[in-house]
Design a protein around this nucleic acid. Structure first.
Lengths: 190, 190
DNA sequence: GTCTATATTTCGATAGAC
DNA sequence: GTCTATCGAAATATAGAC
């Protein structure tokens, strides 16, 4: 096992993710990131033009996760979406489990993300996942009751997995199992 | 109907709440608050010693709401808590509906709140609601499955009501109605 | 209670040597 | 690719007049 030769750029992103989750994007200075990494502030500017770009790069990681989930629903009709939803949610739980820090980053920095998404560069190239989610929940072809249930199921799946050690020292996988059951109860009971 | 003679302190809090929800606590400067209110920055310092204190005061408003909910469970045994939970959740939905801006404030500024809660003054006097919630979900006397369901139900109730106009131009009360049903499905199906 | 003016600090970002 | 040094902007907070 050779030491993983992670690129500096990657290491910056990892440290930034840590700090953004701990303290928030706004309260984290480039100096803190550089210090924890053992370099100087100026070095960061060789890899990223702006502080915002570090944040944006992390956002794109999450963006890719969300796209995978939503692609499953591409081209489906209203009824088929409702039918496929439980399976989609199950995949969603998997992704939250496997990428908890990324989801924490988003949950704890909602405002910072909102401002980045409303920005020039980003909006131009790729439409945002939140936008696609919105479109899904705004689709009048699906009965409102079903759409609200879909939204509820996301919240139900997300909250218990985001709390850290709220339930004491329990295996996250066990929590996820119970959460899946709960979500099935929510979606199953017509 | 006479114009409500709201005190300046109260008006500062209202304007601050607006801006903190729109832009986030960190990205909102005292200058912006003062401008929207039609006074100068220095005037704010007559009413609040620090910027943080404005935020703290808004946090306490929410704190009181949460305490009302949790007080219902005071002194109950594990089984009784589980039994009472659906009713608690129903009251919770009512409060979210009636105080959406306060809940939005918290949702969009999680990091800022975390730092304030970890602070001297605040921790000393009154234990935080989040702490009481944590204690509830960590209570080993309640089966883990039930506790996860409780957490899920909070997420399920919260998410659809926080999205703004995600569902199009629909009455929030109608959304809340469907959300209550969904939560019942989640909690009812053993 | 609100103002003008200013002190103080911190941060993002750049220039240029190595 | 990383460093030292510094600029310029913006923010919190204070002092003191009215």
């Amino acid at each position: 096992m050779s030491a993983t030769p992670t690129s500096t750029k990657e290491r910056i992103l990892d440290v930034a993710l840590e700090l953004f989750v701990e303290q928030g994007y706004d309260k984290t200075s480039l100096r803190q990131i550089a210090d924890r990494l053992g370099v100087t502030k100026a070095a960061l500017y060789y890899h990223f033009e702006r502080k915002e770009d570090i944040f944006l790069e992390l956002h794109l990681r999450m963006h890719r996760l969300g796209s995978d989930v939503l692609d499953e629903l591409d081209g489906l009709g209203p009824d088929e979406i409702v039918t496929a939803w439980p399976h989609v949610l199950d995949g969603f739980v998997d992704q939250v489990l496997a990428n908890r820090d990324l989801f924490l980053l988003h949950q704890r920095n909602e405002n910072a993300f909102k401002q980045i998404v409303d920005d020039e560069r980003h909006r131009a190239e790729n439409e945002d996942i939140e936008e696609r989610f919105r479109a899904l929940l705004a689709d009048a072809a699906i009965p409102l009751e079903q759409r609200v249930r879909m939204a509820c199921s996301i919240g139900a799946a997300l909250l218990p997995l985001m709390g850290g050690d709220v339930f004491g020292d329990v295996d996250p996988g066990e929590i996820a199992g119970y959460a899946r059951e709960a979500v099935r109860g929510l979606l199953g009971g017509q």
